[in-house]
Design a protein around this nucleic acid. Sequence first.
DNA 1: TTTTGAGTTGTTCGA
DNA 2: GTCGAACAACTCAAA
Length: 453
Amino acid sequence: MSGGDGPAPLVLLFRRDLRLTDNPAVAAAAASGRPVIPLFVLHEGEGVRPLGGASRWWLDKSLRALATALEATGARLVLRRGPLAEAAAAVVRGAGAAELMFSRVHEPAAAAAEAEMTRRLESAGVEVRAFNASLLHEPGQVLNGQGRPYQVFTAYWRAARPTLEPGRAFAEPGRLPAPSTWPASEALDDWGLHPHRPDWSGGFAVWTPGEAGAKAALEAFVDQRLADYAARRDRLDAEGGSRLSPHLHWGEIGPAQALRAVLTAVHAGEARGGAAEKFLAELGWRDFAADLLAQHPHLPDRNLRPQFDRLAWRRAPAELAAWREGRTGFPVVDAAMRHLRATGFMPNRARMIVASFLTKDLLIDWREGEAWFWDCLVDADLASNAMNWQWAAGSGVDAQPFFRIFNPSSQAQSSDPHGAYVRRWAGESLAAPIVDHAAARARALEAMKRAGG
DNA sequence: TTTTGAGTTGTTCGA
DNA sequence: GTCGAACAACTCAAA
């Protein structure tokens, strides 16, 4: 504590929790009685994968929304770049802060950076408190009878689901006491998060990043689509998904808030338990992916099943480019890939179709697809993206039988029976098919049999 | 330790 | 057109 003019300030470090409502770190900071200095660090350091383009676009808007919301509390959002530990320590030191609070990011590299930051601050006599604002269950929390982490979702969820309760939301902050002087902040415009030359983000206007947009999205989902969720989420022509994934990724809304909203709707008789359970299981998949990534730090870049290391993936740059750009000649694949580029999003069912097409029909390494999704998706999430690509390729822990290869035509027939989705996103000029599905299927089966044998 | 049942999302073929 | 079986083998989780 410095001087005689009140308590030393507290640094409130925002991570993947860009919200004020139901945020444990924000609530704790507000209750501390200390002046609060909100900080966001754009973490650039070793082992940390740079954000993809769509994620950068989203973060730009979300930080602006957070800064505005903080202004209403009398606070300012301080922006810094650099390795997390250095940037946070510099702000703490400069402000003479006595405490730092943050909500954990559970990815291995991020967790390591947080541990380094914590070590450093604590050795300088600064109190550090960490919270969970982004998962219903943190990695390592759900264990089987042997005390070991689960490797398959169904068993994981059987154990995790019964422990979920609506719980109480953390209080919103009122006015946050301001420090006598504010640390210098970088200018968001200087970070260049919004794309330029070219600005490809015109179609992203369908999104409203930030806490207000997240709350509106949750409300619209619960009111309008939850009741039919289980059936319609697999329809490409119905927009039956929750569309919450990017908001959840950046923590503009927490999974606990979604859980409460959904259970409340069921309780009020606005939706059946079955639809709610289907959605809750999707929240469970987020937790499960984070758990798997913590268990297997190489999930994003190494086959979980080692026999896949022997698989003879094809190097086919022209076909990879055709896939990326939606020029494969398979209407549903091309529609989905164009949808992705235009809006930064693709429905879950479409993701499975294009992932199966890349890894089976084209026999191209799933890591190529993972990288493209990482760059293009507004909800790009290291754990979920990697887990799902490995699942689609068959190289993951919770693997499907390798002969389970999607047929683009029958998938289109069941998920887009009237062709509305295809017309919307790939209405004009479809190329001739770049592969024959039956032959490609046989090729993939043969290659996978050889690698697995 | 051994056994047993099961595993997000599928496709094809033949009766 | 509809239906059920076959498509491999393996790993995981629990009893």
